[in-house]
Design a binder for these strands. Structure first.
Lengths: 165, 165
DNA sequence: CAAATTCTTCAGTAATTATTGAAACTTATG
DNA sequence: CATAAGTTTCAATAATTACTGAAGAATTTG
């Protein structure tokens, strides 16, 4: 990797750090995003990132478990490769969406706790509950629409390939 | 604070931890959410959380800077109080929304880097770019609609108060 | 099934981040 | 303007989290 790519990968890591995930998770994802061909072995990742095999193993495991990356094998080769799973970004957003429910529930628990207290004191929790209830209803709609749109985009790409061949 | 509230506050902290912010930020917010009256002094927060004044000072500063909390004073008292700012949750979501742009830009930078490479290798970055472009367009709409709905809800509450008095 | 290759686990360590507490600073009050 | 009350800053330290590397487990191959 040249200097420019190394920097790109590091910033990919930082972006993930800001986002609340580990930097290494972001770095590995970053390398895979700019890989051509789009898969890399554990050894290659370790070398490109100057990281230990152990840490690559941990990280790829998490990424697979999060459905962001998939294992890939090449016929006749023993080692595993890793590549970005199509729909990875959608998956990240879906997780985020699920967290909304935790926030709503937290608000509801708080309201139970305040049960019969001054309505004025309950306002913030009510706002929190209503807000997350709203988003829990709206997000899936928006996410589904993306899926429809991207499916139809893929279909078009496929059609044009088909016409040409 | 009784045991139940202490646990609630701690879990509020954990929720914020998961979300990528600091636990203490969440704890302070948690205390304020269930406070009646809804404001607390730095000293009260320190005592309720068993935390130092320094750490409370840092945390309230961040919370104010993030527009989640506001200072509050009581006439005739020297000390400052803190309370949840109306619209705090909206503000959290707005920040999240801004992060979408960082992800889109990261994808675009990656595509520049891969410039003339195999279209197949560019796919993941293109998906990432398209996905975040889509969300950057859609989120503000959804967020604005919440604002309208919540404004009209507040208006209704105000009306009914008005009628009664 | 033995040898070679690859992968995972985990105890130890390094790096990072959060928290304390004391001193310095700021602001209000008589 | 001196004193008191309250707040912030920051160096030191505690707590947490990330990473390494070696040992061992799993898998493939001849």
């Amino acid at each position: 990797m040249d200097e420019e790519r190394r920097r790109y990968v590091e910033e990919f890591g930082l972006l993930f750090g800001q986002f609340g995930l580990s930097r290494m998770l972001g770095r590995v994802l970053g390398v895979l995003m700019i890989s051509d061909p789009p898969e890399r072995s554990a050894e290659e990742l370790a070398e490109e990132l100057g990281a230990s095999r152990g840490s690559i193993s941990q990280t790829t495991r998490s990424l697979i478990q999060m459905s962001l990356v998939q294992r890939w094998s090449r016929p006749g080769e023993r080692r595993d490769y890793f590549r970005i799973k199509p729909g990875a970004w959608h998956e990240i957003m879906r997780r985020e969406m699920e967290a909304l429910g935790d926030f709503r529930k937290m608000a509801e628990r708080g309201l139970d706790l305040l049960d019969s207290e001054d309505p004025y004191a309950r306002r913030s929790l009510e706002e929190m509950r209503d807000f997350y209830t709203y988003w829990e209803r709206e997000m899936p709609t928006v996410l589904d629409r993306w899926e429809q749109e991207s499916r139809s985009r893929d279909q078009k790409a496929l059609d044009s390939t088909f016409r040409q061949s």
